[in-house]
């Protein structure tokens, strides 16, 4: 349904004319076989632990999502009202597939699941996210992560 013609106006025009970032280089980092990778997720759905304050509008901050965080303790404070939340209300995995990732690790499809995953506010200007990217990259490397799944909404 996210084929561009299915998205109602003016959201469609907003998406069509969104100023996407461009990059000077195209790095492509290799790694071991998937069965030996340690996988982390980064969601742009502005999800966070229930006991944390909502994401401020336009925020460049990130939130930690420990793998052990119960789905019942995850809420969403994304600024936009123009994407579906009913799926998230039914099943956290439609946005943040933590159970699926655990299953793939248990089956040996991936090596392991990272200790901590991360969430950001997807509507924030990417140019404002450089410091966040540095911080999150450092934390992922501390956790020995060598595969990052980016999950926008």
């Amino acid at each position: 349904m996210a084929r561009i013609d299915d998205i109602p106006e003016p959201t469609r025009s907003h998406i069509l004319h969104l100023d996407c970032p461009s990059f000077d280089s195209s790095p492509f980092v290799d790694g071991p076989p998937l069965a030996r990778r340690r996988v982390a997720m980064i969601s742009s759905a502005a999800i966070h632990a229930r006991n944390e304050p909502p994401f401020p509008f336009g925020s460049a901050e990130f939130r930690r999502l420990p793998s052990s965080l119960d789905a019942g303790d995850i809420v969403m404070s994304h600024v936009s009202v123009n994407f579906d939340r009913h799926g998230f209300q039914r099943d956290v995995n439609v946005v943040y597939p933590i159970d699926r990732l655990r299953e793939l690790a248990a089956e040996g499809v991936i090596g392991s699941v990272a200790e901590t995953h991360y969430a950001v506010m997807g509507s924030t200007d990417p140019a404002a996210m450089q410091i966040t990217a540095d911080q999150v990259a450092g934390l992922l490397q501390q956790d020995r992560v060598d595969a990052v799944l980016l999950v926008p909404v």
Binding site: C20, P21, S26, V29, D30, A137, L140, A147, L150
Partner: peptide, 24 residues
Amino acid sequence: MLEARGLPTVTIGLVRLHLEAVKP
């Protein structure tokens, strides 16, 4: 951004146009 910092990434994207533009 993360790939440039040494981390292999893969993106699930809901807007093909943006994937084509950003080129992850």
